[in-house]
């Protein structure tokens, strides 16, 4: 049997698990020979409180490799994450939610109480709706990335992460070598033609079409950012193409959305993107809803509710 591994999902959409299952042919030897999955709520039947519910404490079996996906949004996630840390020797944060907050962390950008009110108590909801308090784990004050709560040994971002990279990471760990993961930005791996200046001095909205010749490969297309589209390639970690080839969104002739999070661990996508625009003479005010640039990296206190301005006397 292989190395024991436990998978756990916190506040996530199961896209990372689907990416894991999407490894393809290599998946079969990976889960039959290389790894020995002992716990994975989404993929196999292993329950927290004993198989028939006879247990009283949350139990996750000991494992060498632990894989967590999703951010920490409520108390339950926190308990499960801490349990995973206790039981696994090596803990991997898989996917952008686990590494940088991901989509759920967009919630950090607005007042939490106001959000609950809007979700449960506005006119469009059933009359008498209450914010649930029983049988639902209480939310934390904001959405956290895993490494804000426990020590994380390895990270692989992506929404979803590239299946090839997941396989590479796991195989490398079992073989005892360091994994070969891309460390460059999306721009560094993008073949689009760059001429060094923007065509228009401002950012276009994506209701206009990108100019390209469908018969030509991406290398014949002008850089999308230079065409004036809000491509987040410069501030986003590469890897969506599995290390080589055209970045996933660019290959569909669509600007990068920034799903792999910042290039450096502590990077700030919003700040870096705005700095890039401002230093290159593009009007940063033409960016609509710029805070949503942090749509994938809103944890670590990056995205905060707007402060209400106190009226001057």
């Amino acid at each position: 049997m292989g190395v024991t591994a436990a998978m756990e999902w916190l506040g996530s959409c199961s896209g990372c698990e689907i990416a894991f299952l999407n490894i393809g042919e290599d998946l079969v030897p990976l889960i039959t020979e290389t790894l020995d999955l002992v716990h994975a709520p989404l993929l196999m039947d292993h329950k927290y409180f004993g198989q028939c519910g006879e247990g009283v404490t949350l139990e996750i079996p000991d494992a060498v490799i632990g894989i967590v996906t999703g951010g920490v949004n409520n108390r339950e996630h926190l308990t499960v994450l801490r349990q995973m840390r206790k039981k696994c020797r090596l803990l991997i944060a898989l996917g952008t939610c686990a590494t940088h907050g991901g989509i759920p962390a967009l919630m950090n950008g607005q007042d939490q109480q106001a959000s609950w009110q809007a979700i449960f108590k506005t006119v469009s909801t059933d009359p008498g709706a209450e914010i649930p308090e029983v049988e639902v784990p209480p939310p934390l004050d904001r959405v956290y990335a895993c490494d804000e709560k426990v020590k994380i040994d390895m990270q692989l971002p992506g929404c979803p992460p590239n299946p090839e990279l997941i396989a590479e990471l796991l195989v490398a760990i079992v073989e005892g070598r360091s994994p070969v993961l891309p460390g460059k930005s999306v721009c560094d791996t993008c073949p689009a033609r760059r001429e060094g200046r923007s065509v228009v001095g401002k950012v276009k909205r994506f209701i206009e079409n990108v100019e390209f010749d469908p018969g030509e490969p991406v290398s014949g297309m002008r850089c999308l950012l230079e065409q004036g589209f809000m491509c987040m390639g410069p501030v986003t970690a590469g890897g969506c193409n599995g290390g080589e080839g055209v970045p996933a969104c660019i290959s569909a002739r669509v600007p990068c959305r920034g799903c792999f999070g910042p290039v450096r661990k502590n990077g700030n996508q919003l700040l870096d993107m705005m700095n890039g625009l401002a230093s290159n003479g593009i009007d940063f005010k033409s960016v609509v809803d710029r805070r949503s640039i942090l749509r994938f990296s809103g944890a670590h206190g990056r995205l905060r509710p707007l402060k209400k301005r106190v009226a001057k006397e």
Partner: peptide, 9 residues
């Protein structure tokens, strides 16, 4: 402009 986004005056 960005200071307000990050919660500073």
């Amino acid at each position: 402009e960005l200071l307000e986004d990050f919660g500073y005056e």
